[in-house]
Design a protein around this nucleic acid. Structure first.
Length: 463
DNA sequence: ATAGGGTTAG
């Protein structure tokens, strides 16, 4: 009998893995033996593997309430491991739900104690939620878990983010790390270089590059070069960036990828030197570097934004696919933005509708640009459809788009019920930093959306 | 996917 059980759980795991649609996978998980809904318990014991797969799928599809109920339904005998906890925390981070990420960190289904790995995942999730450095530091201290190099790298990254801290904070964290005897890694130096570059302090960034190799014997890698090249390009020093690329290429130890080339490609388009991009591509192929997604995306952006050549941009998208490189949301978003700017929102809309079939999930940027584009065109009944779809998926429109949309409904003047429902939906996901959505996830919605809606309307009218 | 870059909007 044990063999039959094992086999069933094994087959369920395989079937779950095969199912691309998370909702369908959940139905299978809840009712593995027949197609008809049933409340009877499954006839075999689920392996931890089954839980791993379904939780990951639900997390990726942002079906958070469903994911939480699966976790809550874990039998006490099955203790999921920390990697799964980390997946859950990062999923909340990607969805920008800091409260939910914090709750997951303390989730009772996972055995204690938490390690620095889980802590680091939480800190990184909070960073993804744009939490300020002070808050991330507070969380770190409150955990009582000893920080490691990875922790400091995340904190330094948080310090370097706009409006959160400053390069000085990053530098102080670096010094603190040294005082505590934690050895900086290549990632630490990459982060520090990027911090200085982000602040426009190129000389100090180059100084870090020099010190890391002379004092710490850690050679700058492609990440370090990419940051420096980007900073040079932003100051209009494209030729210096090209020279730095050549220095990078001369280092035979260095593992090259196409990342640094993307910056150069984009910069060359910006300064009207797109012919040179062909040379870059050939150089990459000659060196056996796969022309990656970022490079294709840079070219798509260049054709759209600088050349105004939509046909060439779509041709680049085709080339990308022919080369076995799968376009991502960014590839499509650039095209959607361009189509909207040209007033061709119908074409933009068709492209967005086609994305899932092409194997790419539209993201928040996709929807915001499409929604804004349709609102700008004054096609509000069409905008309403996009609004419903994005809100259903938990994506908030841009403030600008929301304002135009609300303005239109008010001008129409005869649909109080519609206005109220739109405001409530906005209140849930847009106002108050998604906390309404988070409360819904946690099943503890305190403030009625109607009350939030009143505040939100004031907010939209003020700005 | 415990951490860093590079390609899109604001």
């Amino acid at each position: 009998m044990a063999g039959a059980k094992l086999s069933s759980s094994y087959h369920l795991a395989a079937a779950l893995r095969r199912e691309p649609d998370a909702a369908a996978a959940l139905r299978l998980f809840l009712n593995p033996t027949s197609a008809a809904p049933s409340s009877a318990p499954p006839p075999f014991r689920y392996s931890l593997r089954c839980y791993d797969i379904i939780v990951c799928k639900l997390a990726a599809a942002r079906l958070f309430p469903e994911m939480e109920s699966v976790l809550a339904g874990l039998p006490p005998s099955l203790r999921p491991r920390e990697p799964l906890l980390c997946r859950v925390i990062s999923a909340y981070g990607r969805a920008r739900l800091p409260f939910a990420a914090r709750r997951a960190f303390a989730h009772p289904a996972f055995p204690d104690p938490r390690t620095s790995r889980a802590l680091n995942t939480l800190l990184h999730a909070l960073l993804a939620c744009r939490a300020p450095l002070s808050e991330i530091l507070g969380e770190c201290r409150a955990s009582g878990i000893a920080p490691d190099a990875c922790t400091y790298n995340i904190l330094m990254r948080a310090a370097a983010v706009d409006d959160s801290g400053s390069v000085e904070d990053a530098r102080n964290l670096f010094d603190e790390m040294l005082q505590r005897g934690i050895a900086p890694t290549i990632v630490t130096f990459g982060t520090l270089v990027t911090a200085y570059c982000g602040a426009g302090r190129i000389e100090e960034a180059f100084k870090v590059k020099e010190v890391m190799s002379s004092q710490y014997k850690i050679r700058p890698n492609a990440y370090v070069y990419a940051s420096l090249m980007k900073a040079l390009c932003q100051k209009g020093k494209v030729d210096d960036a090209v020279r730095l690329k050549e220095e990078m290429v001369r280092d035979k130890e260095l593992v090259l990828d196409s990342g640094a080339y993307a910056t150069l490609a984009r910069a060359l388009f910006r300064v009207g030197r797109k012919e040179e991009v062909v040379g870059l591509l050939e150089e990459m192929k000659g060196k056996g570097i796969t022309v990656g997604r970022e490079v294709y995306n840079a070219m798509i952006a260049g054709f759209c934004e600088d050349e105004g050549d939509l046909d060439a941009a779509f041709a680049a998208l085709d080339d990308m696919q022919k080369d076995g490189c799968k376009p991502d949301a960014m590839s499509y978003n650039t095209l959607v933005a361009k189509l909207c700017k040209m007033g061709r929102w119908r074409d933009a809309s068709e492209l967005v509708e086609d994305m899932p079939r092409r194997g790419c999930r539209p993201d928040v940027v996709t929807y915001r640009m499409l929604f804004d584009g349709i609102c700008d065109a004054g096609e509000f009944s069409e905008a309403r459809k996009v609004f419903d779809e994005m809100v259903f998926k938990g994506f908030a429109p841009s403030k600008d788009g929301a304002r135009k949309f609300i303005g239109w409904i008010e001008r129409e003047g005869d649909d109080e019920v519609f206005l109220e429902s739109v405001l409530c939906q906005l209140a849930r996901i847009n106002a108050l930093d998604s906390s309404g959505w988070e409360k819904a996830v946690g099943g503890m919605l305190h403030e009625p959306p109607e009350q939030m809606a009143v505040k939100l309307l004031d907010d939209l009218k003020l700005t």
